[in-house]
Amino acid sequence: IEQLADEKTCMQFSIRRPKLPSSETHPEENSSRRLDVSAWLQHLNQHGQVQEEYKLRKAIFFGGIDISIRGEVWPFLLHYYSYESTSEEREALRLQKRKEYFEIQDKRLSMSPDEQKDFWRQVQFTVDKDVVRTDRSNQFFQGEDNPNVETMRRILLNYAVFNPTIGYSQGMSDLVAPLLAEVLDESDTFWCFVGLMQNTIFISSPRDEDMEKQLLYLRELLRLMHPRFHQHLCALGEDALQMLFCHRWILLCFKREFPEAEALRMWEACWAHYQVRGTANPAWDLTPQHCRLSRNSLSSKIAKISRVGDYGRGLSMQQEDGTLGMSELHKEVFQEMQNTLF
């Protein structure tokens, strides 16, 4: 079966303005180069502790992380390692967490036949169908009987045992696959995934009202921030206003909307939580940052997407400058939404 490259291209957002005038970029744009090995080591003291967490997060936000050290740095961003931990402490943590991970797995493997049946129906059936069709164009998961696919499968099954409330929802395989491909170790990936899940909308699943609520807020923000586009949606009718076309963007943090390299660059910038409060909600955490990235940092490219780009610009201006372009009324409403959401 052919690769997805072609399929992806035609489904993805196109980047309309690869270069931006400096008047439109963040003042600190270009302040950081990509975090490579030597820059990374400079952030660490002799015990392996991150010296100034804020500086590191800022560097990652603007410059990104070199692919060669992603697997090492992501665990910090995903709350697996703490910034204050020493190298020794991290090694100890890894050992302890590995033990915990295999205990979770043992729990899964020692289910009673009835539990097993239930688990198969609720979780395993779907996971089995999904892992073999997730990121197969990524070299890491290519080919028949690729052991990495089996590892991804175990991580997802074990996660469902670890967090039975969430269990497995379609889309989660999309999130875990890039982690595994960078972090490589099964147990470490699992715990990074646990950290990631804390910051996704899946955490509020399986109740779909949450997604409906997100889309409602998105619609309200759009009405305030970008009334022209909102009017356009109104003219198209109720189906357009439901904003269901944004469902996947929110759920998977734009993973399928951009080429993988750029999507991951956005992910790690979002995880860096630079200048925004950490939220448990990607729609409001990722979207503005994502679009700000598109405007500024992301290889100086702008993803001026027909829809979300302009919306995000409004949002990101709001977040960066507090008041820019907002009437008092809008500010109030926005504040209220923030209070509701965060």
Binding site: I1, E2, L4, E7, K129, D130, R133, T134, R136, Q170, G171, S173, D174, L244, F245, H247, R248, L251, L252, R256
Partner: peptide, 12 residues
């Protein structure tokens, strides 16, 4: 016909 990713939400 090709291997497609699981649909998340809705495709159009």
């Amino acid at each position: 016909f090709r291997e497609l990713l699981p649909t998340v939400g809705c495709s159009f």
